[in-house]
């Protein structure tokens, strides 16, 4: 049984060591110089995480939030676009007809009665916010999501709205906020601008 070198197998070769390197001492001096240079450079890559929070880029895809419109209502119109687009099937919406006799809700046909996102199942791909026609669902830069049980990480509508309240008051809005067409959920915004209609989806930069 001999080791015949086949043409189909690529055999790795160890790098050859020259005379100079086999003397060890110059190579050791070089290695020490590198070590000392790093030791005294004063440059560290350590992040002191709990003490110093990292700077999260504003286009980070973290925990979801459900946006509110100007009147403080949930912006979502329960169109099921995000639930359909979600590749991980983590969004579950139950729609309800908007209360017609309430003047507060007269510009809406539907609103989400429940809006549940399983944050553990989500893969944070951002396709829900791509799909949303009214920019109601957005991924924030909140990254440190923890919990003791699986149950408490299934976010309902109130929890998602509270994420909006927290992030918007802390000034941590995602860059994508108010990016696309707003739709009928905020008529006031469309009438107030008086300009040409906002650019549709796909033309944003």
């Amino acid at each position: 049984m001999t080791t015949k070198k086949s043409k189909t197998v690529k055999w790795g070769e160890e790098p050859k060591i020259g005379w100079w390197e086999a003397m060890y001492l110059p190579a050791i001096a070089g290695g020490l110089a590198t070590a000392i240079k790093h030791a005294f450079s004063g440059r560290t890559t350590t992040r002191q995480y709990p003490d110093v929070e990292p700077e999260i880029p504003p286009n980070y895809r973290g925990v979801h939030r459900l946006n509110r419109d100007e009147e403080g209502r949930v912006k979502c119109v329960a169109c099921y676009m995000c639930q359909t687009a979600c590749p991980a099937n983590c969004i579950e919406i139950i729609a309800a007809p908007a209360p017609k006799d309430d003047p507060h809700w007269k510009d809406r046909d539907k609103f989400p009665q429940t809006f549940t996102i399983d944050e553990l199942r989500c893969i944070y791909c951002g396709m829900c916010e791509e799909a949303c026609p009214v920019d109601a669902i957005e991924l924030t830069s909140v990254y440190d999501l923890t919990g003791y049980t699986r149950k408490e990480l299934i976010f309902d509508k109130e929890k998602l709205l509270s994420v909006f309240d927290e992030t918007s008051t802390a000034g941590k809005d995602p860059v994508r906020t108010n990016r696309g067409a707003l739709g009928p959920a905020s008529v006031e915004a469309a009438t107030a601008s008086q300009g040409p209609p906002p650019p549709g989806r796909g033309s944003h930069g």
Binding site: M1, S6, V9
Partner: peptide, 23 residues
């Protein structure tokens, strides 16, 4: 270093049973 160079660069299979059977 001349001697050591030879030691270091010696192929791993030399002087050992052929365990590297070409699969």
């Amino acid at each position: 270093a001349r001697h050591l160079q030879h030691t270091i660069n010696r192929p791993r299979s030399e002087g050992r049973p052929a365990t590297n059977v070409n699969l």
